[in-house]
Design a protein around this nucleic acid. Structure first.
Length: 561
RNA sequence: UACCCCAUGGUGUAAUGGUAGCACAAGUGGUUUUGGUCCACUCGGUUGAGGUUCGAGUCCUCAUGGGGUAACCA
């Protein structure tokens, strides 16, 4: 049975919604039950803002032994599609939530909703209106002026009943008639000015096919679907606040009990991205990204492909908090949460993204040593692995300079560096091509320093990652950056202009250690000194593709900005 | 020039009439075979004006600022 937060072991302060739910249980409202719901419309993929909503709804249910229903709000067949239903279910499951038997569709309730509408007509609380869309708009008035009543408002109940039935039977064309609630054309809340309940659309529905040609509106369908399912707390975002009187009106007029309560919370926005479904659809349709699951997208699918973990996302949502103020959260908080999780869980490996060859002149040709490397210094149980070392290696181009700037601890002629888990080497010289590009770097190894420490205890400040040339596995690496150049991409439709043209860099010729030859999509690793990466589904048998999830923090780069 | 909601460091969020705290970001130092992690420190805040009170971020009034609302979308 449900418990209160006093009985859970949370020591953190509760947000205002959890407080309210807690209070309701304490007062035995709804017999102390908690039933929430997550009601996506299947017209796009879920994004991090939706994640906040479903983490809240499923989270509360889980925390208090209540239930959370997944209900597809499918009342507008022209925008909806089954492919979105599949994607939404997959994303919620991936995040670790389960609706059990409680999978519903607003379209399950079409017959019942129709009956409720008939009931309202019988009460004289709804009428069939012949006004056109333009006329309705005109009659509605404006934000500052009252509306006026439709000339069809006082039709007899019998006539309304007959007309509504004929609407259902398909006797009228799209837009010819609507069923409207009879409320108050003078209300200061425009949503109460005789809102539409049903409109005619001769369109087949992804679930009900051609059974219906009238479809219920959100305001009518949502509150009643909640009531039908026995939802106790109907949590939605702030922009629905003004709809609440209407939500309550239908429930009250139809005298439904127990009565679900709508509570509104702030949406989650992130810097350097856009969050509205409309804008995300535009990015997909105009091929600004490769799809809904492009790793640069703020969608759950995109984040999965990018390598974010459910745990990191949940933690982020929790840290973002829940209030009634507008929030725009710094994307660095999300990245922090991702790194925090990946740091503890990702195996470390070496990979060279921009390779340059290193030749160790005093190392015997053909000799191969197996160096022991720690898989994760944060977690001893992850063990160690062997990494082959030989005369010719690759290191990162940017780890070598002919002239060292101040505090540059990497490879420079005449100086020593450590090759991680291998040896201390001293750079002697480099060769260049006719363009001045460095072609080879020559070093000598200190054979006494095997493993990386010198017996004389001398300090070597720099440690570089490397890959043995003859053992290297070729890989493609995709580097992602923020999708937009500006913190708040233009809100007025010109957000496309703020797209960051450098949001994706593909490096087709990287070298990684052979340990990675059996990776599979969604495997996550850390390339030491570079960042966290996730194996992409585009990977081929002998050429893996790695998506950069998030770079490691880099105080060196920051200092040199 | 309507109605509704909101207002705490750069950002997000606590403080339920009694010491304004936490996290991220930013910065400084320490440790380090990842310029990572970790550790320590620093920076910086109650929109304004009145009122109630021994005492106000918190309650009241007004002002200011921000957001939402006029689909047969959700």
């Amino acid at each position: 049975m449900e418990k209160t937060y006093a009985e859970t072991k949370t020591e953190e302060p509760l947000d205002f919604i959890r407080n309210k739910v807690n209070e309701d249980i304490t007062n035995n409202k709804n017999d102390g039950k908690v039933v929430t719901r997550f009601p996506p419309e299947p017209n796009g993929y879920l994004h991090i803002g939706h994640a906040k909503a479903f983490c809240l709804n499923f989270g509360i249910a889980k925390e208090l032994n209540g239930k959370c229903h997944l209900r597809f709000d499918d009342t507008n067949p022209v925008k909806e599609d089954d492919k979105y239903i599949q994607a939404i279910k997959r994303d919620i499951h991936w995040m670790g939530y389960d609706w059990g038997d409680n999978l519903f569709y607003a379209s399950d309730y079409y017959e019942k909703l129709y009956e409720f509408a008939v009931e309202l007509i019988k009460m004289g609380k709804a009428f069939v209106c012949d006004l056109s869309m333009e006329e309705i708009k005109e009659y509605r008035g404006t934000l500052t002026t009252p509306g006026k009543e439709s000339p069809y408002r006082n039709r007899s109940i019998e006539e309304n009943l007959d007309l509504f039935k004929r609407m259902r039977n398909g006797e009228f064309t799209d837009g010819a008639k609507t069923l409207r609630a009879k409320i108050d054309m003078n209300s200061t809340n425009i949503h109460m000015r005789d809102p539409a309940m049903y409109r005619i659309k001769h369109v087949s529905h992804h679930r009900t096919g051609d059974k219906w040609c009238i479809y219920p509106m959100y305001d009518f369908a949502h509150c009643l679907s909640d009531a039908i399912e026995g939802i106790t707390h109907s949590l939605c975002s702030l922009e629905f606040e003004i709809h609440r009187p209407l939500y309550d009106w239908f429930l009250e007029k139809l005298n439904l009990h127990p009565r679900p309560q709508q509570i509104e919370f702030n949406r989650l926005n992130l810097t350097y991205t856009v969050m509205s479904k409309r804008k995300l659809i535009k990015l997909v349709e105009e091929n600004k990204v490769f799809g809904w699951d492009d790793p640069r997208m703020p969608t759950v699918s995109g984040m999965r492909r990018r390598g974010y973990t459910p745990r990191a996302i949940k933690n982020f949502v929790k840290k973002a908090g829940l209030t009634k103020r507008e929030q725009v959260i710094d994307v660095s908080l999300l990245e922090y949460c991702v790194r925090e999780d990946l740091n503890k869980t990702s195996p470390r490996v070496m990979g060279v993204l921009n390779p340059v060859k290193v030749i160790i002149d005093n190392y015997p040709e053909g000799r191969v040593e197996e160096m022991t490397a720690v898989n994760n210094p944060e977690d001893e149980t992850m063990g160690t692995r062997k990494v082959p070392f030989s005369k010719e290696l690759y290191i990162e181009k940017e780890d070598f300079r002919e002239e060292a700037p101040r505090k540059f601890f990497r490879m420079v002629p005449g100086r020593e560096v450590r090759l991680r888990y291998a040896y201390i080497v001293k750079c002697t010289r480099c060769t260049k091509d006719e363009n001045g590009e460095i072609t080879e770097i020559h070093c000598t190894v200190d054979p006494e320093s095997r493993g990386g420490t010198a017996p004389d205890g001398r300090k070597v400040k720099g440690t570089l990652h490397w890959v043995s040339a003859q053992h290297a596995l070729k890989a493609e690496v995709r580097l992602y950056d923020r999708l937009f150049k500006r913190e708040n991409p233009e809100s007025d439709g010109h957000f496309i202009d703020d797209l960051n043209s450098d949001s994706l860099k593909v490096l087709p010729e990287c070298f990684v250690e052979p340990y990675l030859k059996n990776v599979k999509p969604e495997d996550r690793i850390q390339f030491e000194r570079i960042g966290y990466f996730c194996v992409d589904e585009d990977s081929k048998k002998d050429k893996p593709v790695f998506n950069r999830t998030v770079p490691l923090r880099d105080s060196w780069a920051k200092k040199n900005k």
